[in-house]
């Protein structure tokens, strides 16, 4: 891994936390303002950071997907470039149709902000390659629109292609549906396993003093890029 580029839209608020997390892991980072149209050649991972791009107006991520940088991200991704979307970043990637499905309002209509246990569903991808299948991780979630939707046929395809990355679960690893998501899904990737999206915030779980270091375990796989 040479460098991580972190996208910044108006309303993004996890860009600096994400930068801090990757730098703590010894990586070089750069922040790309959404009006820019280039991704430097030495970038091995583009992160669409969390927050409230464009105030979540219309739908979360709906307006950000039309920012100039997103065309460049699409080209970068179509050439095999790795992209990680966290929370609002996941919403932006689904709106941009870089990932399948959609994220809608939580079933209980609440903004849920707390530590949440997650089960690793598949590790046959670079993102979760340092985690064990079935492993339970403790990572914060903070969202109002994290209710993942995909139709039955789409769900079947995700399962067959090992595209489901994470599911919400209880401490014992049993499914726990926190927000109404289809099949308790917390994160997915594309068929080629190059684009990753998840609602939880690994960048907020990198120091034991703040409750968990499981975010490091999760992001560590990306170091091999």
């Amino acid at each position: 891994m040479r460098k991580v580029a972190i996208l910044q839209f108006p309303g993004t608020n996890c860009d600096l936390d994400t930068k801090y997390a990757f730098e703590k892991m010894g990586l070089r980072t750069s922040i790309i303002w959404h009006k820019e149209t280039t991704i430097e050649d030495d970038v091995d991972l583009v992160v669409v950071a969390g927050g409230f791009s464009y105030g979540d107006y219309l739908r979360s991520g709906a307006i950000a997907r039309f920012s100039p940088i997103m065309e460049t991200v699409k080209t970068y991704a179509s050439n095999g470039g790795k992209v990680l979307g966290i929370c609002n970043g996941f919403q932006i990637l689904t709106e941009a149709r870089l990932l399948e499905g959609a994220l809608k309002r939580n079933e209980n209509l609440h903004f849920i902000s707390r530590y949440q246990t997650l089960r690793v569903e598949n590790n046959s991808n670079v993102f979760l390659s340092s985690c064990e299948k079935g492993e339970v991780l403790n990572i914060p979630i903070a969202h109002a629109d994290g209710n993942y939707y995909i139709d039955d046929e789409g769900l079947k395809t995700l399962e067959e292609n090992e595209q489901i990355l994470l599911r919400y679960c209880d401490e014992n690893g049993d499914n726990l549906n926190v927000n109404g998501s289809v099949s308790s899904i917390a994160g997915i990737c594309n068929k080629e396993k190059t684009i990753f999206g998840l609602m939880p915030h690994p960048e907020r779980a990198i120091e034991d003093i703040l409750g968990s270091e499981d975010g490091v375990k999760m992001l560590k796989g990306l170091l091999s890029l």
């Binding site: 219309l58 709906a62 307006i63 039309f66 959609a102 809608k104 995909i150």
Partner: peptide, 8 residues
């Protein structure tokens, strides 16, 4: 293109 997300 934008007003509706036709997935949902």
């Amino acid at each position: 293109d934008i007003l509706a997300n036709t997935v949902i």
